[in-house]
Every structure is written in structure tokens, then in C-alpha cells.
């Protein structure tokens, strides 16, 4: 299983044809204390880089974009009442949803962990 990252700071952890999606530790840190996550509906069909969810922190409200196309098959309901889990563990327990990917080759449009770290240094 490997992580891929988008320029908008989402990650997807790919296992076969499903991808678990969240926001990067960098993004969580930049947002500050997360106070609300608008989870997508299970069954929602999303396009790569299209709108997926929304997140609010003490500082700002931001959109979360889908790093891959497909259908949402699971959501992390613990974030409804404890969105701070995103700050505590953005790239593990703070996952947002699972997408059944319609085109696994789309990960080629994303960055590996190493490439993403280099991308952050250039920001």
C-alpha cells in the first residue's frame, strides 16, 4: 500500500481498487484546530480534483478535492463529533472517506510521498 498526494494537499492510500482519502499533515497543521468536517455522502460519485468534502478550522473554511475519481463507499463518522482527530492523525485515523476507484491509473497524476515533500519545500 502506498500513499499518493495531490497539489491541494489530499492523500490517497491505494489498496487494490479502493483508495482511502484524507488531508495531509501539512494541510492539517496549516489549518490549525479543525472544528468541523463536512463528510461526503456514501454513494457520491466524484471526479478526480472535483469537490469531495469541506473542512473548517478556527482559522478558515476550505474545500477538500477528490484525489481520484470513483464512488464513495465509506466515510469516517468519528469525525462528525471529534474532527480534532484530523489534527492528531491526519494521515491515519483522520481519514475522511474510502473511494472505489473507477480508474486506478489516475494515481499517476499524483505525487509520491518523496515528491510531495519536495513540493512542500518549494511552496
Amino acid at each position: 500500500m502506498s500513499y499518493f498526494f495531490s497539489k491541494e494537499h489530499e492523500w490517497v492510500k491505494v489498496s487494490g481498487t479502493t483508495g482511502t482519502v484524507g488531508i495531509s499533515e501539512h494541510a492539517a497543521h496549516e489549518l490549525g484546530d479543525v472544528t468541523f468536517v463536512e463528510l461526503p455522502q456514501v454513494g457520491k460519485v466524484v471526479k478526480q480534483f472535483g469537490g469531495l468534502a469541506a473542512i473548517e478550522s478556527v482559522k478558515a473554511a476550505s474545500d477538500i478535492y477528490a484525489p481520484v475519481s470513483g464512488k464513495v463507499i465509506a466515510i469516517n463518522e468519528t469525525l462528525e463529533n471529534t474532527p480534532e482527530v484530523v489534527n492528531e492523525s491526519a494521515e491515519e485515523s483522520g481519514w475522511i472517506c474510502v473511494i472505489e476507484m473507477s480508474d486506478p491509473s489516475e494515481v499517476e497524476q499524483l505525487m509520491t510521498k518523496e515528491a510531495y515533500d519536495a513540493y512542500l519545500k518549494g511552496l
Partner: peptide, 8 residues
């Protein structure tokens, strides 16, 4: 604006 975090 903050040290550890606004909510803490």
C-alpha cells in the same frame, strides 16, 4: 496569534 493552538 497562537503558540500551542487556539483551542488548547
Amino acid at each position: 496569534i497562537q503558540y500551542e493552538g487556539i483551542i488548547a
